[in-house]
Computed example of a mutant assay.
Amino acid sequence: MRRLGSALLAVGMLVGCGPGTQAETPPESAPSAEQQQQAPILTTTNVDVAIECSGILEFANTASYTLLDRYLPSNVVTNIVNRRATAPFTSLADLSSVPLVGPTRLKQLEGGARTMDFIDADCVGILDGIAISRDDQTAIVNLVNTIDDSELHDVLPDAWNGAVNLLNTRPFTTAQQIADTAGIGDVSFRNIRNSATLSRPLEALFTAINAIPSNGSYGATTLRHFDWWNIASANHYYRDQKECFGLEPTSVPYGASIRPNLANAAEVRAEVQRAFDYVGGNTKVSAAVRDAGFANLDALIQGRSFKGCILTYENDPWSRNTVHIYVDTVNGFSVMTETWWAE
């Protein structure tokens, strides 16, 4: 029987069970609507357990001492049972705070949850400290197989060798292969997951903006994933003005001026809003897509700092393009807008 119940189920069911408790298997009551088979769900917040994998926490929170003892050493079970009596586990990090619970014990808990049908194939499992769904895996694999060199290194600022190894080894077919790549650990794998899954409402907004037909004299393009280095370093025939900020000296495009201050959330938000307004987005993009996209953007940029470049170029005297590139200095989240006009 499929189980996808909340990890915060009432603790009173089995939480207090200690040695000798006879409840050895999950109750076979009829599954609720929430527990019915459903398509895998993309993880869209920075959590360490996908919804499809929440049965791992449910198993840790509700299985009897005797059942847990099948999969874990008795001293670990005692620590888990004693801790959950005070509060249910809400994350893998929470579980890992229990003495003697580390990556190996988490995988053993995952194995027990899978055997006892608390999770199924829609939960890929725990990889480098996070439990991902099948939908997460698809997004992660697609991102790593297609992402540009410059963006991947920004997503993995502290895992340069890991990024190089991914670029040299791809294409991948599973998230496990990515997690197993030399130089990829908990922080870097989570950064990859976040880059692949957390900005889908914003990406939908950008797709809607890009679908607005040009009237021949002006238009806009908005991008979430792009090769900022090739864009910023390109040369243009008639006019080529570049201002950059926060870049390493070796990454500054030739001829660019340097702005001393990084960009903040307000600047990034204002520029995306400008591109949206430039093509009449309020009348051409649905309110649902607009509101979800900007809310997603606001959540991702709040309190963050960004490096990047602002480019103005002309290929002839009768047109102009303006490009704004912003890249989070810590996690590599990036957005680009380009607006243009032509006589």
Score class of each variant (00 low, 15 high):
S6F: 06
L8E: 11
V11I: 09
M13Y: 13
E28R: 08
E28V: 13
A30W: 00
P31Y: 04
P31E: 03
A39T: 07
P40S: 07
E52P: 01
S54P: 04
A60T: 05
P73H: 02
P88I: 07
P88M: 03
T90G: 15
S91F: 05
L95C: 03
L100W: 03
G102A: 12
T104H: 10
R105W: 01
I119W: 06
L127F: 04
D136A: 11
L143P: 01
L143S: 01
D148A: 11
D148I: 03
E151S: 14
D158I: 00
L166G: 00
F172N: 00
A175L: 04
G185E: 06
R190Q: 11
N194R: 05
A196Y: 06
A196C: 08
T197G: 06
L198A: 04
P201A: 07
T207N: 14
I209R: 02
S214G: 08
Y218G: 10
T222P: 11
F226I: 04
A234I: 10
Y237H: 09
Y238T: 09
K242M: 07
C244L: 05
V252T: 13
L262C: 11
A263N: 04
A265R: 03
A266W: 00
Q273S: 12
A275T: 06
V279F: 01
G293F: 03
F294D: 08
A295H: 00
L297N: 03
D298H: 06
R304C: 12
C309N: 06
E314N: 14
N315I: 05
D316C: 12
H324N: 15
Y326S: 02
T329A: 08
F333L: 01
S334G: 13
M336P: 14
W341S: 11
